[in-house]
Amino acid sequence: MRAIVVSATGGPEVLTYTDHPDPEPNPGEVLVDVAASGVNFIDVYHRLGRYPLSLPFVLGNEGAGTVAAVGEDVTGLSVGDTVAWAGVMGSYAEKAVVPASQLLAVPDGIDAEQAAAVTLQGLTAHYLAHSTYEVKPGDDVLVHAAAGGVGLLLVQIAKLRGARVIGTVSTEEKEILARQAGADDVLRYDGFADAVRDLTGSGVHVVYDGVGAATFDASLASLRPRGMMALYGQASGPVPPVDPQVLARGGSLFLTRPSMGPYIATRDELAWRASDIFGWVASGDLRVHISARYPLSEAAQAHQDLEARRTTGKLLLIP
């Protein structure tokens, strides 16, 4: 098969499109013919070595496709089923082996590309809005990068939960997308903390920040007393060390750095979140915006576009 292999960490140029041995499923695993792989910032962090992995490795954490073979002890899945997954390495490839416990059956009415586009970022948006900070009707919510992959989904989910959503974006095109997703107000990054306080009076209940260093201080300044900062990513770079007294001075603020693993640690929790996400997509309550599809061989270009913030919504690699 062909795959994207990383033999040394670095820039997009380290992504090598090459022949790689076909994987074989062990007991409890499933072999999938990959129809589409999702491109995510965690892939960039793995490529850079920010989240170190043993070299060499096949990149990619998310995908969808068709079951090609099942290993021993696998029940409930058959050859030909359409499935999706997130958080499993090796997805930038024509074939992938995935533990059956982490596979999600894709319901009728959702194709493999939609499933690959919504699984990881949809699960992220779900846990942020339901568990990290449980959004309630009437809450004021600030979503950074509101036209990005997670941002567009998070805006929609927060609106489904009855919140007033303020989004930040960098361009007029992205503002249009954020408003189409349901954002009540859309701001540029420059001076957003003051603008948020002008809109809300006392600040927002929660900030969902996947940008990191460039927005962190102003995000804290956007919170009302006892508000929560959910720092779930670092697209602009890691945040320097923080003096906890900053949280006290801001009004007994809460700061958390969530990641997906602990929020899908059990099969029941994974199934709950996926059922909600796929159900909303099937019903039309959650719209998936796929902004670009690249051949698998052009993974480096996809990474360049993502890091340069030239993209909106979701990027897919098609084997």
Rank of each mutant, 00 (worst) to 15 (best):
T266F: 10
L315P: 01
P241S: 15
S78T: 13
Y17R: 03
T9D: 07
E24Q: 13
V97C: 09
R50T: 14
P319I: 01
A214E: 08
E24T: 14
G191P: 14
S170K: 05
T9S: 10
N26K: 13
E172S: 15
S275L: 09
L123K: 10
A302K: 02
I318Q: 03
R310F: 02
L270A: 13
S252C: 10
G148T: 08
L142Q: 05
G210A: 11
I277F: 04
F41V: 08
A282K: 11
A193R: 07
P225E: 05
A292V: 01
A292R: 15
E298P: 02
A69M: 06
Y133H: 15
L220P: 00
D268K: 12
T132C: 15
A36I: 04
A68D: 08
H126G: 02
T200P: 09
A308W: 13
V74Y: 06
P23F: 03
E269V: 12
V88R: 03
H46C: 09
D73F: 10
G60V: 01
T18W: 06
Q102G: 13
T266N: 11
S259C: 03
V288N: 09
T311L: 07
K174T: 02
G203E: 01
L104Y: 00
D243F: 01
S7Q: 14
V141W: 07
L231H: 04
H205W: 11
S37E: 13
S101N: 09
D108Q: 15
